[in-house]
Amino acid sequence: MKDKRILIVEDNSDLSMLTKLALTKVGYTVVCASNGEEALKYIETSGMPDLILLDMKMPVMDGWEFSRIYKSRFPKSAAPIIVMTAAQDSEARATEIGAEAFIGKPFELQELFASVNKMVS
């Protein structure tokens, strides 16, 4: 699994650090971006990851705007997106923006692993 790269897009540094730690422990390579803009820059310079974990509420460029630009700029090579957010109505919105899965905060680690494993394979 070491060759699988996951990009975490999350503005809370504690949370992104912990999630990175958890996923690294089970063998993924993990990169963090603190907002949508940083995430796009990363994809452009280092290539498309295998999975994107996307938080919705971030400064500078939020999850909605990111996914819009992301889907239009990389229509064919786009990696799957799992939306992670605390807001209630985001489940509906996630399907709206074309995310493949949705994880509500706070989440169980097992839940996260199950979803990630499913998306990556």
Partner: peptide, 24 residues
């Protein structure tokens, strides 16, 4: 109210993930 709900959930998520990590 919607912002408050979101704001409160974020620290809770961090706490939960921290403890879950340590469990493993």
């Amino acid at each position: 109210l919607s912002t408050a709900a979101h704001e409160l959930k974020t620290p809770i998520t961090v706490l939960k993930t921290t403890s879950q990590l340590m469990e493993g």
